[in-house]
Design a protein around this nucleic acid. Structure first.
Lengths: 351, 351
DNA sequence: GTTAGCAGTCGAGAGGTTAGAGTGCTAATG
DNA sequence: CATTAGCACTCTAACCTCTCGACTGCTAAC
């Protein structure tokens, strides 16, 4: 099943070369720049075999070879050289994460910007799923006579506030003490727990029952609602730098794909086991159906203080510089993981 | 200075025709579909004059005429037919605003979606400047032992919360009562008031002074910060439907322009006097410099219950269906203005 | 002022040709 | 038997040339 070492070398030469030139690679090119110890005729023979095996394709009879998706797959899994970032690249990353970042979301947004700038590809970030956030406390603050603001504090940070309207008036002190009861009731549950009917939490049977019910409903809506995951794009225009999308038809198909978050999300989502390298490389069609554009997605899962804060990576043509992309994602991962705790944004004043 | 009525008719014919075909218009086309009572020779004479006056251009000697920016200007100011929306278009608008909308931001985001769907152009929305929001109340809620969440309630809605870290521990009750003092101190000011040093508000000289100072600093940072205006884009891929951007170079220039919010914002911002129709039509270069792409922007300022909630409109090639765009923006303006008050999101339950 | 008629202009597209890049095959070589 | 030099063959991209027809501008007649 495996292929000979020499075939691997040749295949790697084809992919490496094609990644930068985007033009069919000839046997003589391989000889000249990668494997001078072989004759072009020998390389031609090997190329013919590699084509039979499904790793290469010829646009037409008298043209060089182009890697197939299968070749890229082998390339990223085995052949790809590991690369270090250059000094200028390192300094770009540093620059982006040097500023004080107070919101968790902004870390991922910055990540997307950095990735796009260094790789010159379109980047994409997935901002975390609220469903897995664990409730730490619930605060209720009176706003108008009969309405209040509900703040849900979770292990991932403070959630965007929701408004409740009660229909009758209550005092500020009422909400203040209700806050304590209700906060305690929900503490420790994730949103996912609460949306499943069979795991209903023990209800409060006292004077706060009405408020409790309203908030419970709110949380359930919140968890089932659309604010599931946020997808952030950066550098969409860079798609058009790629010769693959010089054709306006293809460029449009791709841009439309990027615009529909519902299609984009599952591509970017990292499903790999949490203990492996947490790198996700997809090569091939964007969607399952015929119409969706050909592309590749490389994403990583990022953590801060051991807590997963979301995924980010690049999306682009199948012919992309995987080696560089992987190094960048990797390095950023290390940078983020040692970022100062963001909740206490007062400590790190040193500019 | 003025041009004859017949010239206006001919110019209108050229623009109307060019808007749909995007191809140079010949004298015979005008005669056949717009002005059969004239001979093509007469029309040719008039076309030559209109060209001298700067309203028309010829791509080459033996081609028809194309309108200049000057022609579009006259077109939108005077010649453009006023159009009613079709039933299907009306129902699309209705559908988007029928759902319960709880956030002010979402109104504008929906507006952008509707505009893009109906006009088939890229749409853009400007979400309002927080600097002009007037503070109604400030709530402080204890989070950890020494940190608290600050919620700023304004006339435009509840602002995103900020965290303060105090360095020493306080009780929940302390924050509760501090809330009342500090809320009263800031009530009635806009962010703009607070950021200008000469209009410092009277400081609290009591036990809450430290907390007050921290919050005051936070508000100032908030007001001067980057969260000035938010720009939302919808349907960027639709640019590529336009023959003007069939050239990938031009498409890229335009997409890049859309991506840099700093350039895009001033184009979209509506500076017209508040009492006129509050419609903003810009025709010409996107930026001041030579490199920026040619385009047109049509935006409107939208209000809800008399309060301005931001601008929205379209951006696209100079050749666009201004008549349709204006009708759509107009109709949406009317729809929004009668939307039920969004803060109390419980009343309107009738689905 | 309007219009028919006509010569003149220019671009888009079709067809034909060529140069050269690259292959596959064959036969020779170690 | 793997490797290789040599060569005939293939195919495209680029360039030319030519023609067709869509317009115009001009002139002269109405």
């Amino acid at each position: 099943m495996g292929i000979s070492e020499r075939k691997e070398k040749i295949l790697q030469a084809v992919v490496d070369s094609y990644i930068v030139s985007c033009e069919p690679i000839s046997s003589s090119t391989i000889r000249q720049t990668y494997l001078p110890e072989l004759s072009s005729a020998t390389i031609r023979n090997e190329l013919a075999t590699l084509e039979e095996m499904g790793y290469l394709e010829q646009p037409h009879t008298s043209a060089g070879r182009v890697p197939t998706a299968q070749a890229y797959r082998l390339y990223v899994d085995k052949l790809m050289p590991r690369r270090k970032l250059s000094k200028s690249e390192l300094s770009i990353v540093k620059q982006y994460f040097n500023e004080k970042i107070t919101e968790i979301d902004d870390i991922l947004k910055n990540t997307a910007k950095v990735i796009s700038e260094i790789t010159n590809l379109t980047s994409v970030a997935l901002i975390p799923n609220v469903k897995n956030a664990r409730i730490e406390d619930i605060k209720i603050v009176k706003l108008t006579a009969s309405s209040a603001l509900v703040i849900i504090v979770t292990d991932l940070g403070v959630l965007r506030d929701g408004m409740v309207e009660l229909g009758e008036d209550f005092s500020e002190e009422y909400f203040f003490s209700a806050s304590k009861f209700i906060g305690k009731a929900f503490k420790g549950y994730t949103f996912r727990d609460l949306v499943e009917p069979d795991r209903a939490i023990e209800e409060i049977k006292n004077e706060y029952k009405k408020l409790f019910d309203v908030i419970y409903t709110m949380i359930k809506n919140y968890a089932t609602g659309i604010s599931d995951v946020d997808v952030v794009l950066e550098g969409s225009a860079k798609l058009l730098d790629q010769p693959e999308y010089a054709n306006v038809e293809k460029a449009k198909a791709m841009l439309e794909f990027l615009e529909t978050k519902e299609q984009l999300m599952p591509m970017v989502k990292n499903n790999s086991a949490p203990d492996d390298m947490r790198l996700n490389i997809r090569i091939g069609r964007a969607g399952d159906d015929e119409g969706s554009p050909e592309c590749a997605v490389v994403t990583a899962s990022y953590s801060l203080n051991g807590v997963n804060i979301g995924d980010a990576g690049v999306i682009g043509p199948i012919r992309m510089d995987y080696s560089k992309v992987v190094s960048v994602l990797d390095y950023i991962g290390k940078t983020i993981s040692v970022l100062p705790e963001s909740k206490n944004n007062k400590e790190d004043k040193e500019d």
